[in-house]
């Protein structure tokens, strides 16, 4: 190599030695990084660094006001988490969300199968089914909150039809008396979470449905035909012929549903603010907001500890997801 370098000053190109500049020689390797650089830079600033900042913050006790007043407390925040009833409730609710949210995948599939026909006006039906995904989560939350209202919501009205009667009250206004009180879903510590999950499922099902509808477009008619010749129909056709071809759609549907379940926040904020009672509808994301950022939350370190736990849970899942992606790409080549 040293010899090459000496000769390199003469204009004669030696065999096996590329005389072009470093950039010119490595163009193909550098170019992608150049294109990636802006994205990487911002990803670093807005995602990677904050992750580590947040983890380091979780070892401090801090009220979020003056940075110099943060006090190092080591693992204290985590020790307190272990002993915090509200944290465990949030974790339990997170699991509940994860499990029940998965219903969106089969539900979306069946609606997609149902809508995958060529009837006139089918596009209108499809867009109607997709509608809940288009409107904001906040609006969905508000709509369901009123829907569940025991007095004037749909639930209350239907209940009232069976169990309530209109009476004239003491000042002559019409008022409702019920033989059995209508269920106040949003006021119940035991059921409010299910009510919110049901509200969250509504747009999520629409999302899965769209994924499956596009997937169904790519199902090869030859295979369906071949299956039919072999006598497959109904469930067997679905299970052995259609579903395997929908695998990519199923994978994405599961991914977005898990993400949707883990980041459930807006509906809880709108419908119950984590209540009723002692955070009975909290999830980790909302609990983090509550202890660190809300009106009565001044515990940034503690909030960061909650966020770190949520991050670790997501990390398990994200690692699996990346692994799967990697394997698929390898197979693809």
């Amino acid at each position: 190599m040293t010899i090459d370098a000496n000769i390199g000053t003469s204009a004669v190109p030696s065999s096996g030695k590329d005389q072009r500049s470093f950039y010119a020689r490595n163009r193909l390797k550098i170019a992608p990084w150049l294109f990636l650089a802006p994205a990487l830079l911002f990803f670093l600033i807005y995602v990677i660094i904050p992750i580590f900042q947040s983890i380091s913050l979780s070892f401090y006790q801090w009220d979020g006001l003056v940075a110099e007043q943060a006090k190092w407390v080591g693992m204290d925040n985590y020790a307190r988490l272990m002993d915090d009833e509200k944290f465990w409730t949030s974790l339990k609710n997170n699991v509940l969300w994860l499990v029940l949210f998965m219903l969106a995948v089969p539900a979306g599939l069946f609606i997609a199968l149902f809508l995958n026909q060529t009837t006139p006006g089918m596009r209108i039906y499809k867009s109607l089914f997709f509608f809940p995904f288009v409107i904001s989560q906040v609006v969905v939350g508000l709509v369901f909150f009123w829907f569940y209202n025991p007095e004037f919501g749909v639930v209350g009205k239907v209940w009232g039809f069976f169990f309530c009667e209109q009476v004239v009250n003491i000042v002559g206004n019409l008022s409702t008396r019920c033989s059995i009180d209508p269920p106040a879903l949003m006021a119940s510590e035991d059921y409010a979470t299910y009510g919110i999950i049901a509200a969250g499922l509504w747009p999520q099902i629409a999302y899965c449905m769209i994924l499956y509808l596009t997937g169904l477009n790519n199902v090869s008619p030859d295979q369906v035909e071949a299956g039919r010749l072999d006598g497959a129909k109904g469930w067997r056709m679905l299970w052995y012929v259609i579903l395997p071809q929908l695998r990519p759609a199923t994978f994405i549907a599961v991914v977005v549903t898990v993400i949707g379940a883990l980041r459930s926040f807006d509906m809880i904020a709108i419908m119950t603010q984590g209540g009723p009672g002692v955070g009975s509808t909290n999830v980790l994301a909302y609990y983090m907001y509550e202890v660190a950022l809300s009106e009565f939350g001044f515990r940034y370190g503690y909030g960061a500890a909650v966020a770190t736990v949520l991050f670790l849970i997501m990390l398990v899942y994200i690692s699996y997801f990346l692994y799967r992606m990697y394997q698929d790409e390898k197979d693809g080549r």
């Binding site: 007095e151 009250n169 006021a187 009723p276």
Partner: peptide, 20 residues
């Protein structure tokens, strides 16, 4: 009033105004 946990303070004026 029942269902107080679903109402804001403004919502709770309704039964008061109605005479319930």
């Amino acid at each position: 009033v029942k269902n107080h946990a679903t109402m804001s303070w403004q919502d709770a004026i309704a039964p008061f105004a109605k005479g319930d």
